[in-house]
Design a protein around this nucleic acid. Structure first.
Length: 415
DNA sequence: TGAAAGTCAATATC
DNA sequence: GATATTGACTTTCA
């Protein structure tokens, strides 16, 4: 992509490019066969890896299949097993995500981390999304994969030390330039760096408000977005992006939940999805719906309608928001949503942070009668987490219902 | 064409 | 220093 080309040399389409470059002349291409197995035909890749977490890939003959073609031809892979195994191998051999990502997958460290922690099930992945898993599978199938990566690691270290030494002898420190991946990616000129937009970091209050807004309307109208942006003093694009990202990430968590609910051999067999295991209880962003019993089914099986859900808000923190009128955020509602910013004294909910307390209204939840402390966020982080999980499920219910409703009366539901 | 999927990369956290 | 998170962006898809 244009954006990435400036700062990231290993293009996703060609993982190993930097590896090959840095290695070829030095160590006889330790990853050579890997490279050919990924970027070019996979003809000679041995399928006799010690432990294959999933169906061995059909290795194409000498037909020069591209990775895309291989992905298209690939049988269903167990993404959870693959990521589990990859994590295991990386950890056991002290190999980093960055090196693995850039050389094997053609992805950055953050993407690798995300992918390993929250793999989507195969059938939910697009062809493009399947590609990293095919690459991982191929890598696992290669009996020399670890060796090759270790070699590369050593070479990287060597190169780093060499640069460092030479820069020291030049009399200036280049720690900054060499730190992290910069030295592999090519450094930017200071001019370019100055052009960079500073990253927006949303404060906890802003996030809370956005989440509240999401609870009410996962697909806000442009007007609502503008109002939210104005109230939170954010750019509308930031609010739009936040909703995109939040929906997307919640959806991903739900995939994991569904797998668990299905009792598959996925993360459940290990005591929870990776994201659930790794999630930090304090942050609601994961919105992982671990309340799998019941909740996934519940939203299908209870046959509740939107009114059921909204009505169920009544006894809880979200009451004000619910009553403010489900499908359209009035300015009053937005005041409520952003009340966390406005400080105490708001008439919206208790303590202004009633955020996920909507969850207490979960039709399937006993929490509605268990008096989870109504005073804002649960004191017990686990309770708090539970609320959030349930809220995520309810979001899903709302979304599905709205979608269903849109078929009958688009003018009512279309945003 | 808009939403979802996929990813980058800055930053936070461990 | 490695990994996790997340705002922003591009690409893909229905």
């Amino acid at each position: 992509t244009p954006k990435t080309s400036a700062s990231c040399s290993p293009a996703p389409e060609s993982p190993l490019s930097s590896a090959e470059e840095s290695v070829n002349g030095l160590a006889g291409d330790p990853l050579g066969s890997q490279s050919s197995s990924l970027n070019k035909p996979l003809s000679e890749d041995p399928s006799g890896g010690e432990s294959q977490p999933s169906t061995p890939l059909p290795l194409p003959g000498h037909s020069g299949l591209s990775i895309q073609e291989m992905v298209a031809m690939s049988p269903e892979l167990d993404t959870y097993a693959i990521t589990k195994k990859v994590k295991e191998v990386l950890t056991d051999n002290n190999l980093g995500q960055r090196l693995f990502g850039e050389t094997i997958l053609g992805l950055t460290q953050g993407s690798v981390s995300d992918l390993l922690a929250r793999p989507k099930p195969w059938h939910k992945l697009s062809l493009k999304g399947r590609e990293p898993f095919v690459r991982m599978q191929l890598w696992l199938q290669d009996p020399h994969s670890v060796e090759k990566l270790m070699d590369l690691k050593r070479l990287e270290k060597k190169a780093y030390m060499k640069r460092r030494l030479s820069s020291l002898s030049d009399g200036h420190s280049v720690d900054g330039a060499l730190a992290g991946t910069d030295y592999m990616q090519g450094s930017q000129s200071p001019g370019q760096q100055q052009l960079k937009k500073p990253r927006v970091v949303l404060g906890p209050e802003e996030k809370e408000a956005l989440k509240k807004a999401y609870q009410q309307k996962p697909y806000p109208s442009p007007k609502t977005i503008e109002e939210l942006a104005a109230q939170l003093n954010l750019k509308t694009s930031t609010v739009i992006n936040w909703f995109h990202n939040y929906r997307s990430r919640i959806r991903r968590e739900l995939f994991i939940e569904e797998i668990q609910a299905a009792g598959g051999a996925g993360p459940g067999s290990e005591g929870g999805s990776p994201s659930l295991r790794g999630s930090k209880s304090g942050e609601g962003d994961s919105c992982d719906g671990t309340e799998s019993e019941g909740t996934v089914e519940t939203r299908q099986g209870l046959g509740i309608g939107l009114e059921d859900h909204r009505g169920s808000c009544k006894d809880h923190d979200m009451e004000a928001e619910c009553e403010a009128g489900g499908s359209n955020n009035s300015p009053a509602q937005l005041d409520c949503i952003t009340s966390g910013l406005a400080g105490p004294g708001s008439s919206c909910g208790q303590g202004g942070l009633g955020l996920f307390s909507l969850t207490e209204a979960s039709p399937s939840s006993s929490a509605s009668s268990t008096n989870i402390p109504a005073s804002g966020p649960a004191r017990n982080p686990r309770d708090n987490n539970l609320r959030k999980k349930k809220a995520a499920n309810l979001n899903n219910i709302i979304h599905r219902l709205e979608k269903a409703a849109s078929k009958e009366d688009p003018s009512e539901w279309e945003f």
